[in-house]
Design a protein around this nucleic acid. Sequence first.
DNA 1: TTAAGCCAGTAGTTTTTCTACTAGATTGCG
DNA 2: CGCAATCTAGTAGAAAAACTACTGGCTTAA
Lengths: 287, 287
Amino acid sequence: MLKNPNLNALKMFDAAARHLNFGLAAEELNLTQGAVAQQVRKLEQELDVKLFHRLARGLALTEAGKNYSGAVRKAMKIIEQATQKLQVPSKKLRLSVPPSLASKWLVPRLKSFNQTYPEIKVEIVASETLADFETDEVDLAIRMGQPPFTMGLIAQPLAAQMLCAICNPDFATRVGKINEVEDLINCELIHDHHSQWSDFITDLPNTVGGMKFNQTALAMDAALNGQGVALVPYLLAQGEIANGRLVELWRNKKPSRTGYYIIRSEMRKVQPNQQTMIDWLLMQAGN
Amino acid sequence: MLKNPNLNALKMFDAAARHLNFGLAAEELNLTQGAVAQQVRKLEQELDVKLFHRLARGLALTEAGKNYSGAVRKAMKIIEQATQKLQVPSKKLRLSVPPSLASKWLVPRLKSFNQTYPEIKVEIVASETLADFETDEVDLAIRMGQPPFTMGLIAQPLAAQMLCAICNPDFATRVGKINEVEDLINCELIHDHHSQWSDFITDLPNTVGGMKFNQTALAMDAALNGQGVALVPYLLAQGEIANGRLVELWRNKKPSRTGYYIIRSEMRKVQPNQQTMIDWLLMQAGN
DNA sequence: TTAAGCCAGTAGTTTTTCTACTAGATTGCG
DNA sequence: CGCAATCTAGTAGAAAAACTACTGGCTTAA
């Protein structure tokens, strides 16, 4: 009662105030003349204020009505604009990526994306988990793993895992040529939190240490630094191998369904921006 | 559809966004939790935008929700304020007065009113007709006449008409003392649009001219100027007679119901401001 | 493990809102 | 002067919406 005008009635008042004619206002709102007249009448009762002079031909705003209509018009405009803005799909694109893929693969290439699509504002969320898909409002994600992922998500392969053993050139000359992965058993092996050495080297002594990192990117940095041999997805090392800063000692060529996947929500349909990003990612990964 | 969110649902969204809790929002709006949740859900469908993250305990605004809520809050505030202002009775008081009464009686005294009641902003509408009571949004009016006035109006006597014949002192000495009104028949008679000389002087020759004005105030001015004798309501001349600038040659002492009345609408009830004005007017008129 | 807090969902009732008309008032035109 | 056009007021009844009262499920805190 105190601060409670019926807002839908207010909208009718606004239309009526603009047209100074219930019929035209009704037309604008896809209603009948009676509906608008009735609502305005009720509004006037509710507020206990006369808003219009009813003339034989049309309406005229009262003093109070004039003041009120100004404010109401302003408020309606704000809502209208905000609503419109809401419905224009945002040009932002939030991408959730594992931290190591972000630093070693995505970020170096992102400049080219920005140059090609300057209108798309990319936001990178470095994250390992998928739980944030909803709450972080991520549009797309890249994850390591193999299908099926959680229910409600759609996965599309980006690149196979293809682990490879890498070290820097100096270290490589020290190791010499190897034939099998097992030959590396006596090198300093650098571990990350996936620590998949044991999948390839049986009888790996627990004691044999080397460093351990919680991120693959850090393991790679250590390898670049000559601190040992790291086992990392080929995708991450590709660049550094090509420019000679890393040497590929071995690569797992066995095909596997495990790999990087582009993940998106089943709920929302793909926006053009998102499709652009997906295409670009696939191209960058060589598909 | 395009620019058509249900505004009442928007109000619920606003409340929910402030409390981040449907239950509390519902309490604020005197509704149940379900009603608010339902409306917000519908609003989200309508806009095709998720506004809240539903968490196990409470709500969190989405990115879109945050933006929208800001705008909506602003709009609601505007409406709230405008509505409040609307319901505070205006401190304005619009008074419709016959032009001559305004210039010769009311305006000279208005200064004292303003000093006594500085918080009341008085607006004078000089007008002869009563038709404007509705469309001009006049709070009170003063009119010459006799009851009953138009239906729907309440009249309260302010002062009797009490016509008097006046001229300036010089002119008065020339005329000399008179016993009856008819003695004035040979003077220059000044007429206004009421032209009531003929009510008192029978056999008034049409030809006898003198000046004619469409406002009593102008007739009075002519009399002040020594251009003749005017017949005006005593109320208007009172001041000038008291200060000696006019001389009263004759006064109609016969009582009559015709006079100045304070008129107000039967519809609206008397506001305190209006009562103040009525009391002040009566006092000024000597009641 | 239980209790409490909070959202989602649903069926059914209550309330509101719309429509379709009719009536009355005023204006403009022939 | 009277007829046609234009508008608003008002009303009853139909249609639509909004609200309540619950139930169920999930999550956190004790």
